[in-house]
Amino acid sequence: MSYADWIVLILTLAAIIVYGVFKSRTTKNLDGYFLSNREMPWYIVLFSIMGTQASAITFLSAPGQAYTDGMRFVQYYFGLPLAMIVLCVTFVPIFHKYRLYTAYEFLERRFDVKTRTLTSFLFLLQRGLSTGISIYAPAIILSSLLGWNIYWTNIFMGGLLIIYTVAGGARAVAYTQQLQLIIIFTSMFIAGYLVVKYLPEDIGFFDALKVGGAMGKVNIITTGMSENGFDWRDRYNLWSGIIGGFFLALSYFGTDQSQVGRYLTAKSVKESRLGLLMNGLVKVPMQFFILLLGILVFAFYQFHNAPLFFNQTQVDKISQTRYADSLKNIQEHYNLVDLQKKEIVRSFAATGNVDFSEGNKIQLININKQRDSLRVEFKKLVEKPEIKGDSNDTNYIFLRFVLDYLPKGLIGLLIAVIFISSWGSIAAALNSLASSTIVDIHKQFVNKKMSAGDDFKMSRLYTLLWGVFCIVVAQFAYNIGDSLIEAVNILGSLFYGVILGVFLLAFYCKPVKGNAVFWAAVLGEISVISLFVLNEHKIIDLGFLWLNAIGALLVVMLGFILQFLVFRKKSFS
């Protein structure tokens, strides 16, 4: 990083913090601190929902995902617009009607205290841990590529945002998210423009897509069908996207306080609904364009030298071991194949026509397969027991391109984008962790009669404590191993389905009461964790995305069975 980059990075981050503190003036009670006095218009709600969902990994991982696996990841979001509709019809009017602070408060009205406490505890456990991991995930990437100390990177990634989050609560979070998204989208657009500009002279935007398409990267719609019927392990296809994505989005936006807390700040049901529906309209195109950026980077690397592995730290590490000769062989072979690929692609480009014939496509796909198999060989070296490195470089691809090719100043801006996109989701998480702790736990079991001023002070203290807790989790997250995003998603899948099941019973199944729901949730949670353990030990074969749907349906079924077989007399006596 040059001086110009450092100046841009520091100024951007300082601007966000100052703006957040400037917007911190709020009334000193729970309504002001957690709900911005319920005065937000729909467009602030929309920015806040989007800023909470999009973390650094969204902007780092998605282009890398498109580079390695193509664009089919966009299907993961197809269930989201449908979930927004269900939320608008059911969840939003009820949450507003009772003027709730947290989603779990409603469960006490509908069921009882123990159901409310169980679900808020599951939320705090899951969200506290996954926020810690989401601090570490971008920090380790920056640390590897820029040589920064990981502990200090964690502290800056998870610490600076605490200043405005503690000071201004939900209002500061919402306004900074608005500014953050404007900076993020502007930066990503400039990066995309420059990728196309750096392509050879005769190659334009559509030609770049044809290059990506010829190599099978423009696979937006896939059906998940293989020779043996539907592949339940295939993670991203039309059906897992619409069905699995629907349940995931419904539980995330409907029962996770970090999202519910965003649209509870709206000034009316109408403003909440408009914010959510607009999110349903713009989310799929937004992900499409981020993935498209990955395809453009892929096309760019077909005309330039693509690194064997995008995380250089791992390459350097292996060159210091007894596998250095193996690495040299792989690297030399890879360079030859890469050169061959460049010559073929450039020869098309020189004719000014990149309409690949079937023969050309087969040639390109074969070369790509050779490159991929060499990358797999290298990854096997990284996974050797004495190296124990990170063999997944998907999240490093886009940032490596930025660092290697973008001009000074812009590099600093894109590093800032990683920080502020992290801050947007972490700040919302801390705000919601604090609101659930004080409303669902502290005021229930510790001190029921607190003044508005005490509420405000305790809320700030809990926000600070959760901020420190998440940084501590981040400092220990290196024990998880390589796939951090997967760890966050799996952690979510273990708890989301069950919590969603409880809410579905609350809204749609009038006869089912508190005791039945509580034990259905406990048994459902044990079942979901058992399925996960069986899958880990290869006894069954199930993609984790399905755990959400299974958890929700299991709780609904168990709730009915327990209500009518076990708790029947109590309810009707």
Binding site: V74, F78, P81, L82, M84, I85, C88, V89, L209, K210, G212, G213, A214, G216, V218, N219, I220, I221, L238, R273, L277, G280, L281, V284, P285, F288
Partner: peptide, 27 residues
């Protein structure tokens, strides 16, 4: 609000159809 909900569903379906064409055109 039904008009809004139908709009969101129609936009999703149109997007999926466009994506199918996009996939076929470029691959």
């Amino acid at each position: 609000w039904n008009g809004w909900y139908i709009t969101v569903i129609v936009v999703l379906v149109v997007q999926i159809i466009l994506f199918i064409y996009f996939t076929k055109y470029f691959s």
